[in-house]
Simulated scan of single mutants.
Amino acid sequence: MNKKMSLLIVDDLDDNIFILKSLLKEHLPELELYATNRATEGLQIAGKTNIDCAILDVQMPEMDGVELCRRIKSDVKSCHTAVILLTAHRTSPELRARGLEAGADDFIHRPFENIEFIARVKVMLRTKRAEDQLRQSNFSLGKRVEEQMEALRKSEEQYRALYENAPLAYQSLDGGGQIIDVNPAWLQTLGYQRDEVIGQDFASFLHPELVKTFRKNFPVLQTCGRVEDVPFRIRHKQGHYLDISLNGRSGYHPDGSFRQSYCVFKDVTAQNRIQRELEISEERFRQVAENSHELIWEVDATGLYTYVNRSVENVFGLRAEELIGNKYFYDMFHP
């Protein structure tokens, strides 16, 4: 059975709170509403109450909405709360950047249309419910994985065969980020001996520019239980760096505390190099095509223009945007 969803309003103006509460009660009467005109009190409510969504006014004297958002998202008890920042004017790129970096999920500026405001709140609540269900599924999956791991441990030969022959590099880190286990594929990929790795800080193997990223995101894996397709650059014993894509899950003690991570990664160095070469090749072709005196165009299966160079624009007397997606090849020629 779905739990009743909750929403927190934090605005230093009581009139604004009254308007928002009235609007939400009218259109979403099933919501459990909390409201305060003090940012510090809002932070306490978010930390003590399982708030699903928070609407925060950006301009508040005690603490602005961006800072409040950052603190809510930084607290393990409220990090999953969906946050909408409410501004008295259209958001500037700088404000949006600050809000996004703080963890904001959406921006709404006053004055707003009621129908759009309610629609956005519904989207946030719907997304939050889906994420909660996914986290619960992942937690259940994690418990099943742990149970299966226990069964594998009882059969040392079977477990060891799986461990030794795994095609992907595997590593396990403790709560401090130290390596407590790696498989042969890990050692083979990076050229190290096992005694050179076990007990070492995983961050010491990363490219210096990515160490801060790891320090910031590893606690997220411990708290949220999973990460997927995280890009890193990791140092080979010979000194060069490999591009890797990492996926991880967290293992927990029976009391729910973090035990260790279970991560695998694949070497995507060649894939990334090919992608970069393809982008360079495409850019070279574009430069050649744009500066060619020949007519160069591209059409889709229906004959609709998808690309034209400058020569085509000059000959037809039409701009590229007038042709691409609007004109067919046969439109430009006499029957």
Rank of each mutant, 00 (worst) to 15 (best):
V123C: 00
L246D: 08
F205P: 03
R276E: 09
E94G: 03
T269G: 04
N272R: 15
M63L: 15
Q171K: 15
E26W: 09
V197F: 13
C79I: 10
W186N: 03
R194L: 12
G199R: 06
R38A: 08
V211H: 05
A82T: 02
T302P: 03
D64N: 08
G42S: 01
Q287P: 00
M332R: 08
F214V: 00
D15R: 14
S6K: 06
M149I: 08
T306W: 12
F117T: 03
S78Q: 07
D57T: 04
F232P: 02
V288N: 07
P335Y: 12
Y330F: 14
A88S: 13
N16K: 04
H236Y: 11
G256H: 00
D64H: 02
L246A: 12
Q188W: 00
S74Q: 15
M124I: 00
E164W: 00
L162N: 07
R286M: 08
T40Q: 14
R110Q: 14
E290S: 04
I45N: 05
G47L: 05
Y241G: 02
E156R: 07
L187V: 07
C53G: 05
G248W: 07
L318I: 02
E32F: 02
G239F: 11
F265T: 00
S204F: 10
A104R: 05
P208L: 09
G191H: 03
D75S: 14
S311R: 11
Y328L: 02
H27F: 14
K216E: 14
D201Y: 11
E282V: 04
T223F: 12
V121I: 12
P231K: 06
Y307R: 12
N291G: 09
Y192C: 13
L242M: 10
M124D: 02
G142E: 03
P111F: 05
Q171W: 15
K48F: 08
R286K: 13
V308Q: 01
K128P: 03
A185V: 00
S78N: 06
L134W: 05
F218R: 07
E313T: 09
V83G: 06
E322I: 03
E290Q: 08
R276K: 06
N165E: 10
E67N: 01
D106F: 07
G325M: 09
C69T: 05
